[in-house]
Design a protein around this nucleic acid. Structure first.
Length: 1022
RNA sequence: GCGGAUGUGGUGAAAUUGGUAGACACGCCAGACUUAGGAUCUGGUGCCGAGAGGUGUGCGGGUUCGAGUCCCUCCAUCCGCACCA
């Protein structure tokens, strides 16, 4: 029994708490389970501690962010979750724990920290659930949010919950609608390189027409001021629509019949929907779009100003897909082969290869195709167009190797040689990129080369000394040959010269193209933001600000119709359509609408006058640290940057990149467990038939993993690869009363088993049997020790794989502080890693060991005694490491360093308040509950650790008198030499040379060279 | 095909500017205390070797007194994009 030598006041409180249990236990009269409970109480009682502080934080709100402060600000943001019905698994909080540690660290460092949380609560799953059950998505969403909140609260996050936002709440989506209005009322002025209010454009049209306007728009018809003013309201509205940043247009969209909605490009993966994996087809529909293309260049250059990983930046660059080149117009040939008025415009990144053009290819959907096709080829062209329109996006992608195309019978005229060039159509040319037409240069482009080979079109070589008989030459190094005025020029120079010539001839100009397409903004769904738009005479008008938000109407069915009529179209007329128009817009906004600006709302979440006040936006400014998954690289992150730039242009905020630094946490993968079922058939001679069992219709026979392994390896040797096994197998069947003369093993299936029945790969057989009806009477072939060992595999966590680990169970078993530290301890934050509970005991033991620095048998043993030099060294080494680790977001090594610190202090028997107090502050970002508890126990006011000051590192405590020099010979470490750190290099060299070990390793030779790095190393070259 | 990332013990991993490779944990082995506890403590644990010692960061080269770290070549795995003219 230990007693504190110098008890400090608070000890009595603790003694009082533990005393009633302590005394009886001395007499040993308690039953085992009770004494275990007492042992737990006297030790680190995380349950009691954590629930105490959870309540305290909920009442005191110590993490409330102030909107004005003399402290510097710091904004730490997590990607807010979609509250799904499945709840959180251990992978979800990983990023939240990291950001919470950092937020708490920044508070200790004296920052005014904004660390909010909310819910991206509009979206498909709630709606799909509504379609199935008829339950209103608002109800399921509210339930899911409550569940999430409960789970999050258990982990002890320092969120400022007063700032919570939900994208599906009318108070929030009112402002999403308002922002939409601003985007609708804007156009992009390429001269100022900014979005501007549409009124400036209308004013120009009214006074000067559109000839002088340099806008981001595909509208090409030129009109004068007089012509504009003479147009009807509808005509004007239609023209303006060509300029607006949010616009209605007939566009080729990704139509997903199964989901009954259109999808944005980033929601389509490999030709199927991201959600659900349903096929997606191309369809021409009138849809709302966002003119994100206007911002393409700024979205590209802005990447240079943010601290994100190269991979995410590259993904965005890739998605934006900038290519620099030239447009070129090829006149179509008349009947005599002469140039005509009609032309095909192409975009090329290789104008230097223009003399290598030997044919042209149009996309099958190109508007000129019908016009130019000659009678001779009309049927063939029609057939080809029909065939390619039937192909889905997916088939078209899968068909890359199949070269298809059709000659139109038409010819174009080469602008420089005057030669006639055949015009083909082919579906390797995309209607939606560039002009939907290409000048084919088979010698310089592999696809053109393949096409030419396939259709026997001549290939002209325009590269000097390059062999193109086997493949095209796509490099941009070399010299141009046989190319008129370009002959002899190096490729790069030839590009410039060619563009110059094209511009002089007036047949095109230098041009930059982007792969980025405008984002489709409407969805034929129910559970999303309604548009603040009504129609009159088919012209869309905006709803007045005073009438916002346009609330979602009640509907009786959430399902869209097959032809794409949205649920809102069936909403009750008078409840919904109360504006002066003919009808309301019945589409809703996509999921990314609400998430494109939520980081701004957190700054000013209750503002009813504005989406965010200018002052608060100026104060909080950019998100300093954003943590979330990289899967949003081309969706959310691009759209949020787009909206931020827009809002900046319109003067609402003062920054044009939302997220200054971003870290992408890696996914935590699940570890699935498997059982192995033998599928067999029995031969019964009396019945003259073979009976096949795969387990469902016969006795289930499950074989332990190591035995399964043996079977796998000896598949062809004997039936089960093992005589003993075979006997066991037969015995089981005989015991079941089955009659058979022979048997065959057909296969062995691996079946997912719920990981809650598995501990250290050992299966809880009883629990497994009770899991499913079909396993009730399962038989097991076990290991020698009578256990069933499961196999395992690392897979994505999912309900269907029964490998989901919820944080709740672990919090219950080990506590939130253990869970927090363990998730960090698992490995680097960014890395993908499999979840494995095996190591969690190590972290839990660490916290108990920490506890024992403070308490022994329920007594506080902290002393006011002067700490030892060794303990001060340990402390300051730890302060330095922890701070450095936090600054570089190396949370895993942070945990290691705490372990090292506690191990050392334990060895030193350090119970000094001066040291432990500092340690507790250091630890508080990682393990806030136990830190608060110990902080209070040390005599501080309850709940004040978050306002403590981060310990100051003092290098004086690390100064050492001696250093153990590693002595190497030819770079190989042989022994270490303990020498004073005060020695100069020469002194060290002399001292080491004089050592007997040195003599031994030199083997009588003279070292050729001796390298001494003071305080680091000695190396001798022999 | 293009772009990005990653390869270190039985496992998760560490090594921040080139300077004792494997910290810290898990697991395993041996022991102590105990009489059931998923408890605690001590020692050991990259591989080969009895040992001295050798060897070792995906493969092969290079730079350097010295390379997990820098350079080149190749291999493997993962992720993103992909007929983008």
């Amino acid at each position: 029994m230990h007693f504190a030598t110098q008890c400090i006041g608070i000890t009595e409180v603790s003694v009082r708490r533990f005393f009633p249990f302590r005394q009886p236990s001395l007499f040993g009269i308690f039953a085992p389970n009770e004494s275990a409970a007492i042992a737990a109480l006297m030790e680190y009682n995380f349950r009691e501690i954590e629930s105490k502080w959870r309540q305290k934080w909920a009442t005191d709100k110590p993490f409330k962010a102030e909107d004005t402060s003399t402290k510097p600000k710091y904004y730490v943001l997590d990607m807010f979750p979609y509250p799904s019905g499945a709840g959180l698994h251990v992978g979800h909080p990983l990023g939240y724990i990291a950001s919470d540690i950092f937020a708490r660290y920044k508070r200790l460092k004296g920052f005014n920290v904004l660390h909010p949380m909310g819910y991206d609560s509009f979206g498909l799953p709630a709606e799909q659930y509504a379609i199935q059950t008829g339950q209103h998505p608002a109800i399921t969403t509210a339930e899911n949010v409550a569940r999430y909140r409960d789970q999050l609260d258990k982990i002890g996050f320092s969120f400022d919950w007063d700032r919570e936002v939900r994208t599906s709440s009318p108070e929030y989506y009112k402002w999403t609608q308002w922002i939409f209005k601003q985007i609708f009322n804007a156009w992009y002025n390429n001269d100022t390189d900014k979005a501007e209010h549409i009124d400036t454009l209308i004013e120009t049209f009214r006074t000067k027409g559109n000839a002088s306007v340099n806008a981001c728009s595909d509208y090409e018809t030129v009109f004068t001021a007089e012509e504009w003013n003479a147009k009807t309201e509808k005509e004007q509205a239609e023209i303006l629509m060509e300029y607006r940043l949010a616009y209605l247009a007939d566009s080729w969209v990704n139509w997903c019949p199964a989901l009954g909605t259109v999808l944005a490009n980033d929601e389509v993966i490999n030709g199927v929907s991201e959600r659900g994996g349903h096929p997606v087809e191309q369809k021409l529909m009138r849809q709302w779009s966002m003119r994100i293309k206007a911002f393409a260049e700024r979205l590209l250059t802005g990447l240079e100003t943010v601290d994100w990983t190269d991979s995410v930046k590259d993904m965005q660059r890739n998605w934006i897909g900038k290519s620099v080149g030239s447009s070129v117009r090829f006149s179509l040939a008349g009947t005599e082969g002469e140039e005509t008025e009609k032309f095909i415009e192409v975009f090329t990144t290789r104008p230097d290869t223009i003399f290598g053009v030997s044919f042209m290819v149009l996309a099958p959907e190109h508007p000129l195709v019908n016009e130019i096709t000659t009678d001779e080829f009309r049927d063939a062209i029609e057939a080809y167009k029909t065939a390619s329109s039937l192909k889905s996006e997916r088939d078209r992608q899968a068909d890359v190797k199949n070269i298809t195309g059709q000659f139109t019978g038409a010819y174009a005229v080469h602008p420089f040689t005057g030669e006639n060039i055949p015009v083909w159509i082919g579906d390797y040319v995309l209607a939606s990129y560039g002009t939907g037409a290409v000048m084919a240069v088979p010698c310089g482009d592999q696809r053109d080369w393949d096409f030419a080979k396939h259709f026997n079109i001549p290939i002209k070589n325009i590269f000097r000394d390059i062999d193109i008989s086997e493949a095209a030459y796509a490099e941009k190094e070399g010299t141009i040959a046989d190319s008129g005025f370009l002959t002899g020029l190096p490729i790069k120079k030839a590009m410039e010269t060619a563009i110059q010539a094209i511009e002089e001839k007036g047949i095109g100009k230098g041009k930059t193209n982007y792969r980025l397409r405008d984002a489709i903004f409407s969805r034929q769904r129910y559970w999303g933001e309604p548009f603040p738009v009504y129609y009159k005479d088919d012209i869309p008008y905006l709803v007045d600000d005073k009438d916002l938000p346009i609330l979602l109407p009640e509907v009786d069915k959430y399902l869209p119709t097959e032809d794409g009529e949205p649920p809102l179209a069936r909403a009750e007329r008078n409840a919904w359509n109360h504006f002066q128009g003919d009808r309301m817009e019945t589409n809703t906004m996509p999921g990314w609408a609400g998430s494109s600006w939520y980081f701004l709302r957190y700054m000013d979440p209750h503002n009813e006058q504005a989406f965010v006040s200018k002052e608060k936006a100026d104060y909080w400014n950019q998100v300093d640290l954003y943590i979330g998954g990289s899967e949003h690289a081309t969706g959310h992150l691009l759209y949020a940057r787009f909206w931020t730039k827009f809002l900046k242009d319109m003067g609402f905020i003062n920054f044009d990149e939302p997220f200054k630094k971003m870290i992408n946490q890696g996914m935590i993968l699940g570890r699935s467990s498997f059982v192995y079922r033998i599928n067999y058939s029995l031969i019964d001679n009396s019945k003259e038939e073979k009976v096949t069992f795969n387990g469902i219709d016969g006795p289930n026979i499950l074989i332990s993993y190591p035995l399964y392994k043996i079977c796998e390896e000896n598949r062809n040797a004997t039936i089960l690869g093992n005589k003993e096994l075979e006997e066991k197998f037969i015995r089981i069947l005989k015991d079941k009363g089955l009659h058979f003369n022979g048997f065959m093993i057909e296969s062995i299936s691996s079946l997912h088993v719920d990981i809650s029945f598995v501990d250290n790969d050992k299966l809880d057989i009883e629990a497994f049997k009770n899991w499913r009806e079909e396993y009730k009477n399962a038989e097991f072939i076990l290991e020698e020790d009578g256990s069933y060992i499961c196999g395992s595999e690392v897979e994505k966590m999912s309900k269907s794989k029964y490998n989901v680990q919820t944080p709740d169970e672990l919090v219950e078993k080990f506590g939130a502080d253990t869970l927090r530290m363990y998730e960090m301890f698992l490995g680097p934050l960014e890395q993908f890693k499999p979840w494995d509970t095996k190591g969690i005991n190590g972290v839990h033991n660490f916290l108990r060991k920490l506890w024992r620095l403070f308490y022994n048998d329920g007594n506080l043993i902290v002393t006011d005694a002067e700490p030892g030099k060794d303990s001060l060294k340990t402390l300051h080494k730890t302060i330095k490491k922890i701070e450095e680790d936090l600054e570089r977001f190396s949370f895993n090594t942070g945990v290691s360093n705490f372990m090292i610190c506690v191990n050392e202090l334990t060895d030193q028997k350090c119970h000094s308040k001066a040291v432990l107090e500092q340690l507790v502050i250091l630890l508080s970002p990682y393990a806030p509950h136990v830190a608060e508890e110990l902080w209070e126990a040390l005599g501080h006011k309850a709940g004040t650790i978050s306002t403590a000051e981060f310990p100051k590192f003092n290098p004086d405590f690390l100064v050492e008198a001696n250093f153990a020099y590693p002595v190497s010979f030819n770079g190989k470490m042989r022994f270490s030499a303990e020498l004073p750190t005060s020695m100069t290099a020469q002194e060290v060299q002399a001292a080491v040379l004089a050592m007997p070990e040195t003599e031994k390793w030199l083997e009588g030779k003279e070292p050729k060279k001796v390298i001494v790095v003071p305080g680091r190393i000695v190396n001798m070259v022999i």
